[in-house]
Design a protein around this nucleic acid. Structure first.
Lengths: 215, 215
DNA sequence: GCATATTTGTCCGTATGTATA
DNA sequence: CTATACATACGGACAAATATG
């Protein structure tokens, strides 16, 4: 997983690479981000790396301590609770406001399909990705680039918290059917009902995360 | 507006200075941000300035064009509409979920008081600031640092859009009483009702902005 | 408690590429 | 089409803060 692609804007590429490394767990919560070392690893200068780190700090994936550099953010119970509060605030209204003929609805269908087939193969990593894509698609119904950005940032943080949990099957398996039901309810025109189901889903999902070993 | 204060972290200070300059209209929408010039003006190096610009780009106050540098974001009808959609999504639920004994409620009271007394003096600039503080306080009821951050960013963008309008009295005067009523309704324990009033307020406020000369 | 090694925070000089007069 | 201005990016430097032996 290194070269080959056409690397464009160095700072943006470094941001993306570093974000991926954090979200995929290559860099773990609490890990210090040494500038010299990291810059060499990403193939950019220290200045460019620092630009990338600013962005990720703004996204909440890393935290700066004065004169002590940056570390990968350590998720806490409070931050997970907050993330789910944001999700409950942002996701259900999108289902309420849009109709089933909305163009973004196909994204929802595709995501559910991808999650189901990955689950049959036992690929829980992919199930997780598809699950998050499903919820991104829901917010996509609102047609708001700003709400999209909020959810992207929030879900990246959540994946960071997921990383602290060993067993992704335990995390995603119970909710596959929920997504299907939410989708079907929405597609049958009962957006309000789908929104309520989604809210319940989010409450249960949060509880699952809290009842798990790590955080 | 220059020295005197104790300047700490240069990058952070530069970010704050630049944000202020944009939000207060010293730099106007579409203005190019020349690195050499701006860095000198802010008293930092170009590298440090670039870190600051990354943050502001993430906040939506400036936009980068590849190899052509950054400019102050030009608000559009679409962006104003989106900003209000986010506000309607985030603000009313906060009123619904919290009770009138919530500690953040005093912020609401203070903001309303400040707006009223500034209005008596005809200081519409201050009225505007207090108005936004009122809505920040509402979201503060939710106790969510992430929703706070969302609203901060959104309202900074909105102030940028306000800047395009000549007459702040026209913009804020009609809504002074709304805030008072929303506050009273909330304090009497009718949070749901207050949320509905707030939603209507936001719809009217958006329309006022659209009916105004500039955007 | 002190001397030393690391690391950040910051700045400068400069090379390269891209857009514009 | 050439010249100019500018953004992008790199590498080196150094003081100050911090960790380490």
């Amino acid at each position: 997983m290194s070269t080959g692609r056409q690397r464009g804007h160095a700072a943006t590429d470094a941001t993306d690479d570093l974000r991926r490394a954090i979200v995929e767990g290559v860099l773990r919560p609490g890990d210090p981000l040494r500038e010299e070392r990291l810059a060499a690893e990403l193939g950019v200068s220290r200045n460019t790396l620092r630009e990338a780190m600013r962005t990720l700090a703004h996204e909440g994936l890393i935290v700066h301590e004065a004169n002590r550099g940056a570390r990968v953010t350590t998720p806490t119970r409070a931050s997970v609770r907050d993330i789910y509060l944001v999700r409950r605030t942002v996701e259900p209204p999108a289902l309420r406001a849009a109709g089933p003929d909305h163009p973004a609805a196909v994204r929802m269908r595709d995501a559910v399909a991808a999650a189901r087939s990955a689950a049959r193969l036992g690929d829980w990593q992919t199930v997780g990705t598809a699950d998050l894509e499903f919820h991104r698609a829901i917010v996509g119904l609102s047609g708001s680039p700003r709400l999209d950005a909020v959810l992207d940032s929030i879900l990246a943080e959540l994946r960071l918290a997921f990383g602290a949990i060993a067993d992704p099957e335990f995390l995603h398996a119970p909710f596959l059917d929920d997504n299907v039901i939410i989708l079907e309810t929405f597609e049958s025109g009962r957006g309000d009902e789908a929104a309520i189901l989604l809210e319940e889903y989010l409450l249960r999902s949060e509880r699952t995360l809290f009842d798990s070993p790590a955080p």
